[in-house]
């Protein structure tokens, strides 16, 4: 049996190695969530329109993203972005762009279901009041769609948070990387991976408990 020794996990080590990665993971999650939901909403509206030149590209985009492994998407963007913009881009920036565009595909499916969950009569009511399409969507349909889908959007964000660890593939410095570097430098990989797992678990588990609470409250309001 191996002797586990967590003594090297001093506050200095945490702030020196882990904190930086933690901050990046949170940033990445937050930006990809906000950007992904915004872009995903646009994609969802495109897919639900009646014009093929809007539906087809949106459907193609969403289905492509959803059928490729995320790790490969990360690698693709890391390869392609420098070719497109003509200069190398850091792994962290590349990760932010990748995750925003990738998550948009998943959020768009959620928003599509959310928009469809709003009764058809609501759209008619909006038009009947003289609202334009944009006003009906912005003022009537989307607020209800967001509320209905809030738990699912948050659950997807928890998955997103867990998936940010995959930036490992391009060497970006995230929470997991922070632990890994600390583990290598102090020659304590077993302990650092364990602590990393516990930390990820605590964060994801408590967030999903919160979502469950929220779900119950929304169910009551409805």
């Amino acid at each position: 049996m191996l002797n586990l020794d967590f003594a090297f996990f001093t506050p200095a080590v945490v702030s020196g190695y882990v904190l930086k990665g933690f901050v990046f993971s949170l940033q990445l999650t937050a930006i990809a969530m906000l950007g992904g939901i915004a872009l995903g909403t646009v994609l969802a509206l495109m897919r639900l329109s009646s014009k093929p030149w809007l539906t087809l590209p949106a459907a193609g985009y969403v289905n492509t993203m959803r059928s490729v492994p995320l790790v490969m998407v990360i690698l693709w963007f890391f390869l392609l972005i420098p070719l497109v913009i003509g200069r190398p881009l850091g792994a962290e920036m590349s990760a932010i762009i990748t995750f925003t565009l990738f998550e948009a595909a998943y959020y768009s499916e959620i928003m599509r279901a959310g928009i469809q969950s709003v009764a058809r009569g609501q759209v008619a009511a909006g038009y009947a009041l003289g609202m334009s399409y944009g006003q009906t969507m912005r003022l009537v349909v989307l607020p209800q769609a967001f509320r209905n889908m809030l738990p699912v959007l948050l659950t997807q964000t928890i998955i997103l948070f867990q998936d940010t660890s995959l930036v490992y593939a391009i060497g970006a410095y995230d929470l997991l990387k922070g632990f890994e570097v600390a583990g290598k430098n102090f020659n304590r990989p077993v302990e650092t991976y364990l602590v990393a797992a516990v930390l990820y678990f605590i964060i994801s588990f408590s967030l999903s408990m919160l979502v469950r609470k929220l779900q119950q409250r929304i169910a009551i309001i409805r």
């Binding site: 049996m1 191996l2 867990q162 998936d163 660890s165 995959l166 490992y168 997991l176 990989p189 077993v190 991976y193 364990l194 990393a196 797992a197 990820y200 678990f201 994801s204 588990f205 999903s208």
Partner: peptide, 21 residues
């Protein structure tokens, strides 16, 4: 347990931690 730890971290646990323990 298995839903709330990122897959990559779980893979590392199986590869680095479990055999050590």
């Amino acid at each position: 347990l298995f839903r709330n730890i990122p897959l990559l971290v779980q893979i590392f646990l199986w590869y680095h931690v479990v055999p050590a323990l």
